[in-house]
C-alpha cells in the first residue's frame, strides 16, 4: 500500500505567456502509516503536489502509482482511488452546502454507494472523532464558527474511511487554541485509525511536534525529505528558502554556542527542556565535585 511518484512534472497553462512549472521532477514514495509533513513557502508547489496524490490533477509528465497501479491508466477507477486517498482542501469550510451538518458529512459516504443509514453511522463516528458535539449535528453548517466548520469539513472526508488522509493547511485562519485542538485531533486519528496522514503547512512549529517525516518543497522541487530532526539541522539553508526552523532550534543552538552542552537537535519544547535540565545537572554536578 503506497503512493509512488516518479519523475512527476506539472506545468500550468503550457504554451502560453502564463506558463508556470509548478512541479519539477518529483520522486516520492509514501508508504503506509506514516505521519508526513509537507512544508514550503507560498507558491512552492505543495498544493499542486497533493492534488496529484488522489489524481485530481494529471501530471504533465511522469507516473503516479497507487499500490503499484498507474492511476492514469485508461481503465483505472479514479473515483475509487479518491475514496481511499482523502483530501481536505484549504479553507474546507467553503465546500459545505447541505441544510444540516450530518447530511453534509454524509455526502462522501453516500457517493461511495452507502445507504443513508450506513452513511449516517460513518458520519457520526467521523464527527465525534474530530471533536464535534452531538447536539450540533442538526444545525446548519453556515451558522457554525470557523473552527467548527473546519471540523465538519474534515469529518466530511474522514467519513469516507480513507486509508490516507491529506490535509492542506487545516489550521489556516484559526486561533492558536483552535489550531492546537485540530492538530491534536489529527494526531489522535493517526493513532486510532492507523491511517497515513499528510499534513501540509507553512509553519514549522505546527508540524515539528507531530510528524515523523518532513518533506520540504522549494520552487517545485523537493529540497529535503527526512525526519524533522535531520531537516532542522539545515536551519540556515531553510532560512534562505524563506522558511525557518522552530524557534526552539535557534535557542538550543545559541545555548550550545555559549558553552552549555545541550542536544542542539531537539525539535520540540519538551525535548529541549529535558536536554537543558540534563545539561544543567551535569554542569552543577561538575561544580560540586
Amino acid at each position: 500500500m503506497s503512493i509512488k511518484l516518479e519523475n512527476v512534472m506539472y506545468t500550468y497553462s503550457p504554451g502560453t505567456a502564463y506558463e508556470i512549472h509548478a512541479l519539477k521532477n518529483i520522486n516520492l514514495d509514501i508508504p503506509d502509516g506514516q505521519f508526513i509533513g509537507i512544508i514550503g513557502h507560498t507558491g512552492s508547489g505543495k498544493s499542486t503536489l497533493i492534488q496529484h496524490f488522489n489524481a485530481l490533477v494529471k501530471p504533465t509528465s511522469g507516473t503516479i502509482t497507487y499500490n503499484g497501479d498507474d492511476v492514469w491508466a485508461d481503465k483505472y477507477d479514479r473515483r475509487a482511488l479518491r475514496s481511499e486517498v482523502g483530501l481536505v482542501f484549504q479553507y474546507p469550510e467553503h465546500q459545505l452546502f447541505e441544510n444540516d451538518v450530518l447530511s453534509d458529512v454524509c455526502f462522501g459516504p453516500m457517493n461511495q454507494g452507502l445507504s443513508r443509514a450506513e452513511a449516517e453511522k460513518e458520519a457520526r463516528r467521523a464527527l465525534l472523532q474530530v471533536g464535534f458535539k452531538e447536539e450540533n449535528f442538526s444545525k446548519s453548517p453556515f451558522e457554525l464558527s470557523g473552527g467548527q466548520k473546519k471540523r465538519v469539513a474534515i469529518a466530511g472526508v474522514l467519513a469516507m474511511n480513507p486509508k490516507i488522509l491529506i490535509l492542506d493547511e487545516p489550521t489556516a485562519g484559526l486561533d492558536p487554541k483552535g489550531r492546537d485542538d485540530i492538530l491534536d485531533q489529527i494526531a489522535e486519528l493517526h493513532k486510532m485509525r492507523g491511517i497515513t496522514i499528510i499534513l501540509v503547512s507553512h509553519s514549522m512549529e505546527d508540524v515539528a511536534k507531530y510528524v515523523d517525516r518532513l518533506i520540504v518543497m522549494n520552487h517545485g522541487e523537493v529540497a529535503y525529505d527526512n525526519t524533522p530532526k535531520e531537516v532542522f539541522k539545515h536551519y540556515e539553508e531553510l532560512e534562505k528558502i524563506g522558511l525557518a526552523a522552530p524557534q526552539i532550534t535557534y535557542i538550543m543552538h545559541a545555548l550550545k554556542d555559549n558553552g552549555l552542552p545541550v542536544d542542539a537537535d531537539a525539535t520540540t519544547v519538551a525535548e529541549a527542556a529535558e536536554s537543558i535540565l540534563k545539561a544543567l545537572k551535569e554542569k552543577g554536578g561538575q561544580k560540586h565535585a
Binding site: 467553503h94 472526508v157 469516507m160
Partner: peptide
C-alpha cells in the same frame, strides 16, 4: 470547489441531464 467535491466522491461527468443538474448542487 469542484475539486473539493470530486475528492468527496462527487461526479460531475456522468448521468443524464436531470441527474447532472442535481449533481451540480454541491
Amino acid at each position: 470547489i469542484m475539486k473539493a467535491q470530486i475528492a468527496r466522491g462527487a461526479d460531475f461527468e456522468s448521468g443524464n441531464i436531470i441527474q447532472r443538474t442535481k449533481n451540480m448542487i454541491p
